[in-house]
């Protein structure tokens, strides 16, 4: 007979289900309350939640502090944006070596965003994962900056001005117009990722990744290919962040190079820590909390960063369990 799960795990599941129910009824409640204009904000929160959960995959479980996830988020957004841009202009994305046309189909754009961001994560990870600790932090930050400059170097995609998109993607020939369709798509992607990621973390691969965080030498001695496991996790994480970027591009019908910036990478780490690392649900909560805080503070004062900074500082120094730890009552992590 299986042992019953500990109380904090069950409490966590209950909280997660309640959260899901809240997100499922939110569009109807907001419409009924005449607050429908808040739905795009929630869509952004879902997208950032997905990106933060993706970062938690390597940061929380793998112990790999990536300061470059903004690059994957932005790459996903730019892939979607570029495909839409060329579909609108009826010009090919690439002429050589193979001709690739633009596309407005979500079933093309989202996988393309995931594959491109994943491939980029694979390349960056392959070099960065040869190092540890502080080196890893600085190198991922530096590579993200490189991607930023590379994208700015393409004049056709707007440089620092960003790329305005002619339309949103189509899903099964239906345009993702209005606030609701894109909200549901974002929610479905987030829930899908969380379910899969939970499973993966309980499986052999996830256990090996977590083991390598706690004691790399022992995992190596047991014969686990630690480098390859980490590289795979980093690639998956980058791909998922790319999908989040594709959602953001659709939601705003605009792609800003800001998404690739180091500030975005820093914010993603903040979301993970604020919510509680190594919990997957926590970073989603952290994303909601941080964006809400930014939204509220920027409405009050133009110098909201001066308030946000100290709040973040105090959270890191004194509030170590994160929001999810409060919700689930889980013991402090690591």
């Amino acid at each position: 007979m299986r042992e019953p799960a500990p109380w904090h795990v069950r409490r966590g599941w209950i909280a997660a289900r309640l959260g899901l129910v809240a997100l499922l009824v939110a569009p109807f409640v907001l419409t009924a309350l005449d607050r429908g204009y808040l739905l795009p904000v929630m869509t952004r929160m879902l997208a950032y939640g997905l990106a933060a959960a993706a970062l938690d995959f390597v940061l929380g479980y793998g112990g790999l502090v990536s300061f470059g996830h903004g690059a994957f988020l932005g790459t996903g957004a730019y892939v979607t944006g570029v495909l839409l841009h060329h579909a609108g202009q009826r010009t090919p994305v690439l002429r050589w070596p193979v001709e690739i046309g633009g596309s407005a189909d979500a079933l093309v754009a989202f996988p393309a965003a995931a594959i491109t961001a994943g491939a980029l994560a694979f390349l960056i990870g392959a070099v960065s994962l040869r190092t540890r600790g502080v080196h890893f932090i600085m190198i991922t930050l530096a590579f993200a900056q490189m991607v930023y400059f590379l994208v700015l170097a393409i004049p056709e995609y707007g440089g620092t001005d960003g790329l305005m998109l002619p339309a949103r993607n189509n899903l099964l020939d239906l345009p993702l117009d209005g606030d609701q369709p894109i909200y549901w798509l974002a929610l479905a992607l987030l829930v899908g990722f969380l379910l899969v990621a939970r499973r993966v973390m309980e499986a052999r691969f996830g256990l090996a990744l977590r083991g390598a965080r706690q004691n790399e030498r022992r995992m190596l001695a047991l014969g686990y290919p630690v480098y390859r496991i980490r590289l795979l996790a980093f690639t998956i994480s980058g791909a998922a962040a790319g999908v989040a970027g594709a959602v953001l591009a659709n939601q705003a019908a605009f792609v800003s190079p800001d998404l690739l910036s180091w500030q975005r990478s820093g914010e993603l780490i903040m979301m993970v820590i604020l919510g509680g690392q190594g919990t997957l649900f926590g970073p989603v909560l952290g994303a909601f909390a941080l964006l809400l805080l930014e939204e509220e503070l920027s409405a009050v004062t133009e110098h909201w960063m001066l308030v946000l900074g100290p709040i973040l500082l105090l959270c890191v120094l004194f509030f170590r369990r994160g929001l999810w730890g409060q919700v689930s009552g889980a013991p402090a992590h690591g």
Partner: peptide, 21 residues
């Protein structure tokens, strides 16, 4: 190192905004 990154990141936000003011 993660905590160090986060705290000093928060210091950047504070410093930039203070200079702006």
């Amino acid at each position: 190192h993660l905590d160090q990154v986060l705290v000093t990141y928060a210091v950047i936000l504070i410093a930039n905004e203070s200079v702006k003011i």
